[in-house]
């Protein structure tokens, strides 16, 4: 089943990390997945984690240039969440009874493999960030995560001007790059 124009617009907005679209999709789909996880041996926190990871998969997919979704967003999120949760149950051997069967599930294996790869990369950067120490960590986060400009950063971290802050940022970046590639080779 192809997507309606409306769904395509929503997907595009998700890819752009637009809050309104995220909220709409969240509101529409969370309880279905929550019900699935909680009635299959999961907790409320498990449900939240699984759903948010599925949203992450949807986000990655919407960002990729050759993106297409062959089913409704709802079906897709359900299929991904279901796969993620079953995998987790198998890993922790909490599975005791057969999971109740639901209709309309689409194959998501490939997408999840891709997600796993991207997640590995993310974890490598996260570990490198965890090792860099302060003030580098906060400084780099201010720039790359919170998108502050050098002027704001200078004021915030107490550098006399933007050039000093910039210098410090490059110092941190050189260090982080080293840590990143060290992690990379270990992984």
């Amino acid at each position: 089943m192809a997507n309606t124009d409306q769904e395509l617009a929503v997907l595009k907005a998700i890819g752009n990390n637009e809050k309104a679209a995220i909220e709409a999709v969240y509101k529409e789909n969370f309880s279905l997945i929550q019900h699935f996880v909680v009635s299959n041996n999961g907790s409320e926190d498990d449900a939240r984690d699984v759903f948010q990871e599925a949203m992450m998969v949807l986000y990655e997919k919407s960002k990729s240039p050759d993106f297409e979704l062959t089913c409704q967003i709802k079906t897709y999120l359900y299929s991904v969440s279901r796969r993620l949760w079953l995998k987790k149950l198998q890993q922790s051997r909490r599975i005791e009874s057969q999971v109740e069967n639901f209709d309309r599930v689409v194959p998501v294996e490939e997408d999840l493999e891709e997600h796993e790869k991207l997640n590995q990369q993310y974890l490598i950067m996260r570990t490198a960030m965890g090792k860099i120490g302060e003030p580098c960590k906060s400084l780099i986060e201010a720039f790359y995560v919170h998108r502050k400009n050098m002027h704001e950063i200078a004021g915030y971290f107490g550098y006399t001007n933007a050039d000093n802050a910039k210098n410090q940022k490059y110092k941190c970046l050189v260090r982080l790059k080293k840590l990143f590639f060290a992690q990379y080779k270990n992984a």
């Binding site: 990369q121 993310y122 950067m125």
Partner: peptide, 9 residues
């Protein structure tokens, strides 16, 4: 990777 890390966060 740095840019993507920021986006994911």
């Amino acid at each position: 990777e740095m840019e993507r890390y920021g986006e994911v966060r």
